[in-house]
């Protein structure tokens, strides 16, 4: 039992971090970022390249992922999303763009890094063992703690910094924020850069444990969508709650339902449909604030 909860918490911390980036982009731009999973995979590959091929320490790889993905996010916003949002008749057009970017990133990953599964050697050795009740390798604990730390930093940034306040204002009411003198173009760019950076960071963190491969992008995006649906799209607390709930459900489901075959996700999806029929806006779905 303790083991299941520990696994769930560990998974949840990772998931929450992915969902945070997605929900940030969604609330600022009203764009469902289909390319989020691909950004995550890209971040993982960058860390892999820096750590394994260049032989630099892990923290450098992590920073490199964060910086490269942030730049990528900013460029995508500036040159792709902003012009399309300005000229398109319907909001949904950005979805085509996001899907196109997802395909494009897949192609770039394939050309740059190949299609093989890549991983980084363990950063810390040893296994934590508490009386045979919780058994967890130290590197997983470290990654989990790092993820939670990043979540805390992110929330602090959104709540107490000037840029964070501007972004929250944008998410609440774009027009009003603009009238109050918030530089919409600049903070939209910053928001997408931040969202992409979070995806890259998770990729960098998880490459040490599960590794990354080209095919992970799409399924990761779907999981991230699930999380923000559970929690409510565009809400920070919702994304975190959604991440932990999904992590916990997966952990419990894999243990309890293993006797019935591979149906954990089927059950999760079915539950979600029923839940959304009752509460369409998710747990905390309301405007950002």
């Amino acid at each position: 039992m303790e083991q299941i909860i520990a696994n769930g918490l560990y998974l949840g911390a990772q998931y929450a971090l992915i969902a945070l980036g997605l929900t940030l982009i969604f609330s600022l731009m009203n764009v469902l970022n289909f390319a989020h999973g691909q950004m995550y995979v890209f971040g993982g590959f960058v860390t892999y390249t820096v750590v394994v091929q260049l032989g630099l320490p892990f923290i450098v790889g992590l920073l490199a992922s964060a910086v490269i993905l942030a730049i990528m996010g900013a460029v995508i916003e500036k040159f792709l999303f902003a012009p399309v949002v300005r000229r398109s008749k319907r909001d949904e057009s950005t979805m085509l763009l996001a899907a196109g970017i997802a395909f494009f990133l897949d192609a770039v990953i394939l050309l740059l890094f190949g299609e093989k599964q890549r991983g980084v050697p363990k950063i810390v050795n040893g296994v934590f063992n508490w009386d045979m009740r919780i058994i967890m390798p130290y590197d997983r604990i470290l990654i989990g703690v790092l993820a939670i730390l990043l979540i805390v930093v992110f929330i602090a940034f959104m709540n107490y910094s000037r840029a964070g306040r501007a972004m929250r204002a944008l998410a609440q009411d774009r027009m009003a924020a603009q009238l109050m003198g918030v530089d919409v173009a600049r903070y939209s760019m910053l928001g997408l850069a931040l969202g992409a950076m979070l995806a890259g960071l998770v990729g960098g963190l998880l490459v040490t444990i599960t590794g990354v491969n080209l095919g992970m992008g799409g399924p990761t995006s779907i999981k991230a969508f699930l999380m923000i649906m559970i929690g409510g799209a565009g809400v920070i607390s919702g994304a975190i709650a959604g991440g932990f709930i999904l992590g916990m459900m997966e952990s419990v489901g894999l243990t309890v339902l293993s006797a019935y075959g591979d149906i954990t996700y089927l059950v999760i999806f079915a539950t979600l449909m029923v839940f959304l029929a009752v509460r369409p806006q998710g747990l905390m779905g309301k405007p950002w604030g």
């Binding site: 969604f26 009203n30 469902l32 979805m95 779907i222 969508f225 699930l226 923000i228 649906m229 799209a233 149906i263 996700y265 089927l266 999806f269 079915a270 979600l272 449909m273 959304l276 029929a277 369409p280 806006q281 998710g282």
Partner: peptide, 23 residues
């Protein structure tokens, strides 16, 4: 039930529907 949802929510539920069908 799901057509009561709108915008991105409906989009995401239908996306999940594809996974449900496959699983």
């Amino acid at each position: 039930p799901i057509l009561r949802l709108r915008g991105v929510y409906f989009a995401m539920v239908t996306l999940v529907l594809t996974e449900v069908a496959r699983l």
